[in-house]
Design a protein around this nucleic acid. Sequence first.
RNA 1: GCGGAUGUAGCUCAGCUGGUAGAGCGCAACCUUGCCAAGGUUGAGGUCGCGGGUUCGAAUCUCGUCAUCCGCUCCA
Length: 518
Amino acid sequence: MAAQQSDQFKKVIAHCKEYGFIYQSSEIYDNLSAVYDYGPYGVELKNNIKQYWWKAMVQMHDNIVGLDAAIFMHPKTWKASGHVDAFNDPLIDNKDSQKRYRADVLIEEYMEKIEKKIDKEVAKAGKRFGDAFDEQQFRETNDRVLRNQQKFDEARDRLAKAMTDGDMEELKNMILEYEIACPESGSRNWTDVRQFNLMFSTQLGNIAGEEGKLYLRPETAQGIFVNFLNVQKTTRQKLPFGIAQIGKAFRNEIVARQFIFRMREFEQMEMQFFVAPGEEMKWYEYWKEARMKWHKALGTPDEKLRFHDHDNLAHYANAAVDIQFDFPFGFKELEGIHSRTDFDLSQHQELSGKKMQYFDPEKQESYVPYVVETSIGCDRMFLTVMSQALQEETVPDAKGKDSTRTVLKIHPALAPIKCAVMPLLKNREELTSKATEIFNDLRFAFSCQYDEKDAIGRRYRRQDAIGTPYCITVDFDTLEDNTVTIRDRDTLEQERIPIDQIEKIVREKVSMKQLLKD
RNA sequence: GCGGAUGUAGCUCAGCUGGUAGAGCGCAACCUUGCCAAGGUUGAGGUCGCGGGUUCGAAUCUCGUCAUCCGCUCCA
């Protein structure tokens, strides 16, 4: 991370706080770790981001519909989705290197080593015996191979049992018995194995116990999957079709940092697209392109965005790609596009005993659809917008000298405040009353602000700092000919326009239409 | 969670070896001001992150705790 980029990140965080975009949660109680509140301008910007997504995904597609599922779901949901198992990481620390590892991964690596030993032995024997070599027979009879194979099998069985039983002590014992050393320090000075469950739990009813245990959803997708048939039937959708949802999700991250990039409570904007088996890769490619286009429409330069293929796929996916953004701390995942196969629906079908199938009228058969998912972090999108928007410029001041201008160059369609109305001077009643009149009319159309305090230049700069794209100024000419000046945030240029044209002109400039048109 | 650094006004910080808090900017009111962070006057704001301990006395020393930042791990 370059020092300059790090500076930019600090500036973004400070700006968010100072101008009412984002505050840390529970600040008066010394904050709650990795939880943030959106302030007055933050909530406007976030709502606009959500609206842009919803418009693009739901309202502009005939075959995508919306959903708002509850945060609480039946506990079996998370068994089916694999989160109960996959989100339980047994972790162990090496006291000397102070590195943290997943205990099960350490044991798996140990097993791999044994496997390699066996393969080496077999390869060696193969060379020795030449064409007459019978690998099967060698593996079944060679002493050294058999001994290693036995070790391997034992480790595999013990690991499997310990993982299903959640037996942390056994994992620790295995690491000690197998004399597994820290890859970094070579030391065998380990802490105990501790379980970290990434799901938050609470209980249903007021009696604590396993039966009533509920989880706060770690992803919004499952609310869509369990409602798949409800939505399909009530909206008479045919494959392919999608269900979109914006909502909160919760993960008890071990380390949650980097401002709103990784939070314990966060908001996802997800769309699950249901397709016929065999067509998933076609749609996977389609959504890859469509989602990238959505990002670029905001004016994000090409070099700030890239695709990044997943090296190891999650338990539910057969293809997965990230859209990464060049955050001030480097390229990081902003959105994921996953081909989730029929994993989720099949799992739910199995655990619930209810059919999760679609009857295809053309093929005259029923099947479990495949799913292609697009999933974007709303808060990360917010950070994306903020971190490119915040700029410092050198512009001439009233005396023609250089001064620094802090400006948020947010796309007008996303800007929290679309337009500010201000009288040139505040001690002239004829100016303030005219400006107030214009403001009171415009506020019906957009989020507007009225400001008469301080010098006009300062007021412009204040609007720059919160990203307001247009400022309307009422001056003495206004009283003569009913025109005002409209100032552009980015070019600083002013244009004279008639009062009755303000709404039309601003509306056009802040519309999402330009973002969504081809 | 582990290791390191940090925590004083809304913000950025000063406060030396312990003697009970300041600056700049910002904010509020009034005056002034004919277009890009102008000027003047007045004013509000801090039990120095929180809780113990040492001391006649702690923002300053010590322990604990909470939080933030930087590394390790994970992910939207």
